[in-house]
Amino acid sequence: MTEKGFILTTYNSNIDRGSVKWSSPSNIALVKYWGKKEHQIPENPSLSFTLSDCKTITEVTYTKKSGNDFSFDVFFEGEKNEAFKPKIQTFFERIELYMPFLRDYHFKIETSNTFPHSSGIASSASGMSAIALCLMSIEQELTSDVISTERSMSDEKSQMYFNQKASFLARLGSGSACRSIEGELVVWGKNESTESSDLFGVRFDGEVHPNFKNYQDAILLVDKGEKQVSSTVGHKLMYGHPFAKERFAQAHQNLAELTKVLASGNMKGFIEIVESEALTLHAMMMTSMPYFILMKPNTLEIINKIWAYRAKNDSNICFTLDAGANVHVLFPKAEEIKVYEFIKRELVAYCQNGHYICDSVGKGATPL
């Protein structure tokens, strides 16, 4: 599929109003995306676990209007939120070519998260994917009685088109959002190891050993404050980075190795790749110009505690990090009871206000 394949050419402009609602999850990358080209195209491929419970619930009500300007209001947790409007405005401008009906309607966007606001969990992936899915449902309603190429497809192909375009649109709002449409594992970025695309996330098509089914993710909230450097700024610092070329090659190699690990069930190999990827992400931040550190002292304390616990208990627990201070503790379902005892006993003390979130790998977004 190319960009042109996502351009909507015909729709029913006589529909006056309607409402759609979606729930879309966050995701956590195992192989990290850091650095992007124009139009939200990744410099390297990434592979992520889709989460189950950390999600955004968004309802979009659309009403026919006059005039040619974009018109929308955003409500977060029931309160009107002006701070979100510039990002939505930019998003609409980027996707207008693919959804020309955006100027025909006023949109009331009501959104909320199942995880605490300002918890330090990046909500752009779940938030932008939820909006993209709502807009795709509106497109579906506006084209339900219009004869078009996609309407003549089989149900399976029609659903594939829906998901691909939703992911494509979500990417233009937030790169990682394209990995939140489906689950359990999603690849984004062209590579030689898996079916993939730079334009949208693709459900991982490789074999997955039972060892990696029902994987758990405990998110330890080390720092709930706003990051000192936004991800957008961080990505731009990969331009001219002295180690960028090597990093992009490393991501391709790690993705190739991880596909083998997922098929074989090699949990030690999984740990090595996932933890190395997390530390490499932060190493790139610390060696950019300007350089910055998003990990906190308690982040390092938790990592060292995890390493000690793993060695002592022959455990398969490991960690990964996003572009922030919080720690995602990954472990198989079989170790759930023991690991949560360990978290309560030794790691909660390093979490801000003792807060952490229990989650697991999920199946992707769902209409409500």
Results as ranks from 00 to 15, higher is better:
residue 3 E to T: 10
residue 6 F to Y: 14
residue 8 L to A: 08
residue 10 T to P: 08
residue 10 T to W: 05
residue 17 R to K: 15
residue 20 V to H: 04
residue 38 E to Q: 14
residue 45 P to V: 12
residue 46 S to H: 02
residue 55 K to T: 05
residue 58 T to P: 08
residue 69 D to G: 00
residue 82 E to P: 01
residue 83 A to G: 04
residue 84 F to T: 10
residue 87 K to I: 01
residue 93 E to P: 05
residue 113 N to M: 08
residue 119 S to D: 14
residue 130 A to R: 05
residue 143 T to G: 03
residue 147 I to L: 10
residue 147 I to S: 06
residue 154 S to P: 12
residue 159 Q to M: 08
residue 167 S to A: 13
residue 169 L to P: 07
residue 183 G to D: 01
residue 184 E to N: 10
residue 193 S to D: 06
residue 194 T to Q: 00
residue 198 D to A: 11
residue 206 G to L: 11
residue 207 E to F: 09
residue 215 Y to H: 07
residue 216 Q to Y: 06
residue 217 D to R: 12
residue 218 A to L: 12
residue 230 S to Y: 01
residue 231 S to Q: 14
residue 232 T to Y: 04
residue 238 M to K: 10
residue 239 Y to H: 14
residue 252 H to K: 09
residue 255 L to H: 08
residue 260 K to V: 13
residue 269 G to A: 04
residue 269 G to Q: 10
residue 272 E to R: 11
residue 281 L to I: 09
residue 283 A to S: 12
residue 285 M to S: 14
residue 286 M to K: 15
residue 288 S to D: 05
residue 294 L to F: 02
residue 298 N to P: 10
residue 298 N to C: 03
residue 298 N to A: 10
residue 299 T to Q: 10
residue 301 E to A: 09
residue 301 E to N: 15
residue 309 Y to S: 07
residue 313 N to W: 06
residue 319 F to E: 02
residue 320 T to V: 09
residue 325 A to I: 15
residue 326 N to T: 10
residue 327 V to P: 03
residue 332 P to W: 00
residue 342 F to M: 09
residue 343 I to M: 01
residue 345 R to W: 03
residue 350 Y to Q: 07
residue 355 H to I: 10
residue 360 S to D: 00
residue 367 P to Q: 13
residue 368 L to K: 14
